[in-house]
Nucleic acid binder design. Structure first.
Lengths: 227, 227
DNA sequence: TTGACGACCTTACAGCGTAAGTATATGGTT
DNA sequence: AACCATATACTTACGCTGTAAGGTCGTCAA
């Protein structure tokens, strides 16, 4: 009775065989919804209409799966177009990275932590370095530039991922809840919340462009003197 | 036979009662060594000579414990001294944050993700905002400044935490291993590794000050025009 | 002396990643 | 058409995890 029915009781009726790409895609969707801790092999299998262990035909282990997910993120970010001026290319890259990381916030703390980078990761890095070198950056200045740019973009994405709200209404609600009775002891925080964050039209996301311009201006100035 | 011996076989002979502070301190030490995933209630209890469930007399649950750990990190970072010029204060703050996050790398992705910030966190934030406001920053510019500064510092710390090596020797070994046969297809990466990263005296940590100066210069320029 | 309280321990449960072993369907070769 | 190698999927089992529920005991106030 129970034996035969079990197979077709899954959420998804599997049309065809599984492959690595669809496992990775499903894993990314699951992490998008429940964070990286919400991704488990059992749940992932269930969502694909398969037992957990079947996934191991397509990924070596969970670490390998996460490596593939991160590599896919780099693929989505996209590489600078060869020959594009460095400032335009870096602006596009920063905005694209930030946009992808907003869709896949679980990836932000993982981008720099992979000891075995995938093909797309390597390609992306090489293309970015090439863009800067062709733009006149010396080797040491290229290292400075990419460290600074990535630190800013990753750090901003990390902050954005930590925001426990989505739109402006939620922001206002939460800000007021937190500040309840704390205004007296934290006057500057209270000022920021009441005069800025809860203002009509405020969106934390808008802070991104300000910082990016500061960073790019700084790099442009560092490029001027010689070279 | 086995019943009575078990209690004293723990790693640590408990002299006195446990308290919240020592639980938090031990948890930080454990996370320092094995990352946040290496911290488990059972192992933490064992290291304190206590059963896992006894920890729940001092912390509500693991989430509460991690909240306390993050708040302790903000406490260690320290607040700007009232009256200190903003640029000096922000430099000190950035370097202190980065230094603390190097010792406690597990904290970097967590700093911005706490929905219930602790007392030290709130105090630190308020003091930082106050320093900028007193330095002549308008409310909106203060928001820009702290977002930019924190993005840079957190992002840099994140990159640093992801480095899978510690000293220069390991760096060279790993770089050469990764580049094995990949030099031809990734010329710019190969160039960076061979001409810069594997050079005597190179230390990724040195990149920090360059970026920090760029950020602070940018803020100083944004402060000039008016206000 | 008593009785309440807080710190600690024991037991138990559902869920985790994955090692090991088994069944089954597919595609290529006779 | 018959066969078998291989890839894919399933089953079972192990030692982990966080923590709910309840029992034991030493300390201190009344």
């Amino acid at each position: 009775m129970s034996d035969e029915a079990a197979n077709e009781s899954s959420n998804v009726r599997r049309t065809r065989r599984l492959d690595r790409a669809s496992v990775v895609a499903a894993a990314m969707g699951m992490a998008d919804e429940g964070g990286i801790d919400g991704l488990t092999m059992r749940k992932l299998g269930r969502s694909l209409g398969v037992e957990a262990m079947s996934l191991y035909n397509h990924v070596a282990n969970k670490e390998d799966l996460i490596d593939a997910m991160v590599d896919e993120v780099f693929d989505m970010i996209g590489d600078p177009i060869p020959g594009e001026p460095w400032r335009e290319a870096m602006t596009t890259r920063a905005q694209s990275t930030r946009s992808v990381l907003r869709t896949h916030p679980w990836a932000t703390p993982l981008l720099d932590s992979r000891t075995s980078p995938g093909a797309a990761t390597m390609r992306h890095l090489d293309a970015t370095l090439g863009c800067l070198r062709n733009g006149g950056f010396s080797v040491p200045l290229t290292a400075h530039a990419i460290a600074l740019l990535d630190a800013y973009v990753y750090g901003f994405s990390l902050q954005e991922a930590g925001l426990p709200f989505e739109g402006r209404d939620e922001t206002v609600d939460l800000a007021e809840a937190i500040m309840e009775g704390l205004g007296e002891s934290h006057p500057h925080l209270a000022e920021l919340v009441s005069e800025h964050i809860t203002r009509e039209g405020y969106d934390f996301a808008d802070e991104f462009d300000f910082g990016l311009e500061v960073v790019l201006d700084g790099l442009e100035r560092a490029l001027q003197p010689q070279d």
